[in-house]
Design a protein around this nucleic acid. Structure first.
Lengths: 132, 132
DNA sequence: CGTTACGTTTACGTTCGCGTCAAGTGTTAG
DNA sequence: CTAACACTTGACGCGAACGTAAACGTAACG
C-alpha cells in the first residue's frame, strides 16, 4: 500500500460497501484497481469514481448509465467525437437531474402539507397539554 | 366506465405503464380498483395513488416503502397509534428526500462544472469560426 | 355464427444488483 | 512447518419489478 493506494477492506470501510460490491463494479468496468501481485489496490482515481457511482445510484441511475457518465469525468485526452458524444450524454443527464430536482421539490412540498394536516389531527386528538 | 372511472387501458396510456404493472401493483396492495363484473375500474383515488407510486419510484423508494407511505395520504379516520407511526415514517422519508435534494444540488453543480470544462476543450479543439 | 378486440388468471422467464458459499492462493505469526 | 488470515475467482442464489406466453371469458360487429 505504497503511495496513496488502499486495500479492498479500507475501501469498504470508507464507503460502507462490501468487497463483493467492489469486485462487481470492477467486473462491470466501473472501477479499475491496480494489481499488486494478486491483490487489488485502489488509488485516488478509484475513490473518486466510486463516490460518483454511489451518488449516481442514489439518483436512480443504472450501473450501465453511470459507467458511461464516468467517462466524462475522466477524459484527459479523448478524441473529439468521443468528447462530443459524452458531452451530449451529460446534457441529457443534467436535464434529467434538473427535472428530478423539480419533482423532488414538489414532492417535498406535498409531503410537508400532508404532515401539517396530520400534525393538526394529532393535536386535535390529544389536547392534554393545552393549558401549559 | 360510468362516473369518473376508467379502464386499465386508459390508465396505461395516461401514466405510460403496462397492464401487467397495474395488476402487479394491485397484487402488492398498492392499488384497489373496483370490479365491474370481472373487469377492473380505476377511479380518482387510484389515479392519485398511482401518481404517488410513480413519483416514489423515481426517488428510489421500493414499492413496499411506497405502500406504507400511501397510508399517510389516505387517512380519513385512522387510529391515533397508526397515525403517529405513519407520521414518524413520513418524517424519515422527508429527511431522506431533503438530504437527497442537497446531494442532487451538489451533483448538478459538479456536472455543470465538468461540462463547462468540456465545452472549453471543445471550443479549443475547433477554432474554425474564431473570426466570425 | 365466427372472429376480432379487450379483458382475465396462472405461471414461468428475465434483468439488475448484489449475497453467499466453495475452493484455491499467497503472506505473515507463532 | 503450520495455522490463521486476507484476498482471490467462480458459481449459484435471491428479491424486486416487471415481461411474456398460454389459455380462457365475453361482448360487439358484420
Amino acid at each position: 500500500m505504497t503511495d496513496q493506494t488502499m486495500t479492498i477492506r479500507q475501501m469498504c470501510e470508507d464507503f460502507n460497501v462490501t468487497p463483493r460490491t467492489l469486485r462487481f463494479y470492477e467486473a462491470k468496468e466501473l472501477l479499475f484497481p491496480v494489481r499488486e501481485g494478486q491483490k487489488r489496490l485502489y488509488g485516488k482515481r478509484d475513490r473518486a469514481r466510486l463516490k460518483l457511482i454511489l451518488r449516481g445510484k442514489r439518483f436512480g441511475f443504472s450501473l450501465e448509465e453511470i459507467r458511461q457518465l464516468l467517462d466524462l469525468y475522466y477524459m484527459d485526452d479523448g478524441q473529439e467525437t468521443q468528447l462530443r458524444e459524452t458531452y451530449a450524454l451529460a446534457q441529457k443527464h443534467l436535464a434529467d437531474m434538473e427535472s428530478q430536482r423539480a419533482e423532488l421539490d414538489d414532492a417535498i412540498a406535498e409531503l410537508k402539507a400532508q404532515m401539517d394536516w396530520g400534525a393538526a389531527r394529532l393535536a386535535q386528538l390529544e389536547p392534554k397539554r393545552a393549558a401549559s
